[in-house]
Design a protein around this nucleic acid. Sequence first.
DNA 1: AACGAAGCGGAACGATGTTCCAAGTATATG
DNA 2: CATATACTTGGAACATCGTTCCGCTTCGTT
Lengths: 210, 210
Amino acid sequence: MNAETKNPDGGLESQDLKDRHLRADAQRNLDALLQAAVEVFETSGVDAPVREIAEKAGVGIGTVYRHFPKRSDLIAAVFRHEIDACADAAPRLAAKHEPVEALTRWMQRYAAFIATKRQLAPALHSGDVAYESLSAYFLQRLKPALQTLLESAAAAGEIRTDVDSKDLLSAIASLCMSAHDDRPDHTRRMVALLVDGLRYGRRSSQDAPS
Amino acid sequence: MNAETKNPDGGLESQDLKDRHLRADAQRNLDALLQAAVEVFETSGVDAPVREIAEKAGVGIGTVYRHFPKRSDLIAAVFRHEIDACADAAPRLAAKHEPVEALTRWMQRYAAFIATKRQLAPALHSGDVAYESLSAYFLQRLKPALQTLLESAAAAGEIRTDVDSKDLLSAIASLCMSAHDDRPDHTRRMVALLVDGLRYGRRSSQDAPS
DNA sequence: AACGAAGCGGAACGATGTTCCAAGTATATG
DNA sequence: CATATACTTGGAACATCGTTCCGCTTCGTT
């Protein structure tokens, strides 16, 4: 009924943050659990039984529920984990490649990530409390990541400057949602097309300062 | 592997068609089952337990599975039933109201129908064989229904003539999918806006026959 | 009325999410 | 190093579902 009964900070565990000393073995199990969940979800989809994940991680079912009270918490944790991985890829790519190349590679990376999560989309809008914060987190992490890449490429004069990163994120997501199984690289080409679109109008801005 | 093992006619039961004499009590149970399913799905959503529907219909679980071998068959049957109801509303409205009024009312009717089926959309694209034929049936029934209404209104010179009924169907569906719960009549106004859009360009066609 | 077949009800099965607690183990403390 | 204590664990057990099965009931016919 009231929202006060919920943990105000969003309360999702992470293997990176050590909030209150977590016992060493517990930490090890948590990591194994997350890794196993990633693999199982990739193999059998998000509908895979909790027991299968527990077995793959080499722990008991009780351990799973100790770390993730609800099945949806596990899914949410994995999702967050992958959002982080995708967001963290941005600065890494930016350091290794020139701006447009980094931007291109990241968009492809992001597209591949979204394609994996197609079956998650329904759940996201199902009103489940466990997924409520995910949409916000998604934008909070990915929008700045893309924005930085866009700004670098724009500063180098390689692409246009009038593109909103949020629009671009959802545009790519839409592309991936409609991808057919019989066109494995359809999405890749569509994203490449988007990048070309970004380059096309690069000289259209004349209000550039300095 | 091969498609030949599947029933070639699509094999979905209907309370309207009497394929092979159905025993009187069986027919009664089938009707009660369908009605109960409609009510339960409305109340508790499509994820409602089969047992709940059986109880509401006053029959045993075995009876449900006699008529609908799979849970998805029940859902599909209800969906078909409601598609029929929506399609049948078109000629009824056309007989009772002037063309544009009939068109408006039907579009609102259709929008209300779609809004109810939001949770069904994921299942429709999940690849389940039971739902495969539904998309086709959906278009087969609804497109002609809308098209007739559109043509009547166009013939009366009340609306433009360059609107594809299929596009309009999916446009309304899209509107309903993005509807928020805190805006109950948002969809209604959006559909009304669509109707106004139809009226706006009414003089743009000059190739109207007879 | 009697018979055969169609139909019915619900116990039972297997899978899955979730709870619970006795037993085990890491860590702090002496 | 030994001990105490609280944190963790494993998995049996429970609740809920979809689905199957089969003995019994009821309808339609002769």
